[in-house]
Every structure is written in structure tokens, then in C-alpha cells.
């Protein structure tokens, strides 16, 4: 944009270019994981997590490219929103997947939740716990 080309500008450009390419690669990692992993739970690892790094790198590159200070708070807010929402949706999908037996037991080396679930199911049916017992108390 500005006519003079001092070295600092090209360095910033190069860094943001690398960040953008790596950020895009993270999306590709998610897709490769989606296609190659055997069951829902392992797919979730590939699907949601690399996006955190991917979006971080892309937003960083965007901030570097804009070269104004007031975009940074927006970018940070966008990233923090992602940090807050990704684990929650991953947990919800993962829990639903576990309960509906969307995993292959032969691919697990240990399952320490199984016994607990069996015990709870034997005791009180398959109740809808969401911490439900605790929120009722309020």
C-alpha cells in the first residue's frame, strides 16, 4: 500500500504469509483426520483442535496485515470466543458419541469410564445427568 518498501514491511509480510499457509494447513489437518481416523472420538480430536491453532494463526496474520492497533482487541475477542466454545461443543458431541456407543472398543487400550457408567445405569436407569442434580438445588 505505502510506496516505500522498507525491510520491516517485507518481514511482516513474510511472517503473515507463513502464518496464513500454516493456518490453512491446520484446516487440511482437520479434513485428513476426519477422513482417516476410525471412530467418532478420534475424529473429534482431529476436527476441533487444530482449528484453534489455525484460527489463531490466521487472526494473527490478519492483525499483522492491517497494521492498526484497534483491530487487535476484536481479534482477541474472536479468538477467546473460540477458546470458550470449542471445548463445550467438543464435550457435548463427545459425550453424546460415548453414550450412543460411537466408538470401537477394540481401539481403546483402557476405558475407565465404562465401569462407572455401568454402575450408574444399574443404580438409577440412564438418568439425564447434566449436573442436573446440582442445578436443581439452586
Amino acid at each position: 500500500m505505502d510506496p516505500e518498501t522498507f525491510s520491516g514491511d517485507t518481514v511482516i509480510d513474510a511472517v503473515s504469509a507463513v502464518f496464513m499457509v500454516v493456518g490453512a494447513l491446520m484446516s487440511l489437518a482437520a479434513a485428513v483426520g476426519l477422513l482417516r481416523f476410525p471412530d467418532l472420538m478420534t475424529r473429534m480430536h482431529a476436527a476441533t483442535k487444530p482449528q484453534v491453532l489455525g484460527l489463531f494463526l490466521l487472526l494473527f496474520a490478519l492483525g499483522l496485515q492491517m497494521r492498526t492497533w484497534w483491530v487487535w482487541p476484536v481479534l482477541v475477542v474472536a479468538w477467546i470466543f473460540q477458546l470458550l466454545t470449542v471445548p463445550v461443543s467438543a464435550h457435548m458431541v463427545g459425550r453424546a458419541g460415548y453414550r450412543t456407543k460411537h466408538l470401537h472398543p477394540e481401539l481403546l487400550s483402557a476405558d475407565e469410564l465404562e465401569a462407572v457408567v455401568q454402575q450408574a445405569a444399574g443404580k438409577s436407569g440412564f438418568s439425564d445427568d447434566d449436573g442436573g442434580a446440582t442445578t436443581d438445588g439452586r
Partner: peptide, 27 residues
């Protein structure tokens, strides 16, 4: 094979759209 897989994949698709928006803005 299941609904959850599809949801997961569409989530990834949405994230890819977001990444594309981001790159467009940066470039």
C-alpha cells in the same frame, strides 16, 4: 456413518469458511 459424524464434519466445513474469510481479509 452417523449423525454426529456429519455434525462434526459440517462444523469443520464452517471453520474452513471462517478461515477463508480470514485469509480474504488479510490479503
Amino acid at each position: 456413518p452417523s449423525l454426529l459424524d456429519r455434525v462434526l464434519a459440517s462444523d469443520v466445513l464452517l471453520a474452513i469458511v471462517g478461515a477463508a474469510l480470514c485469509i480474504d481479509m488479510a490479503v
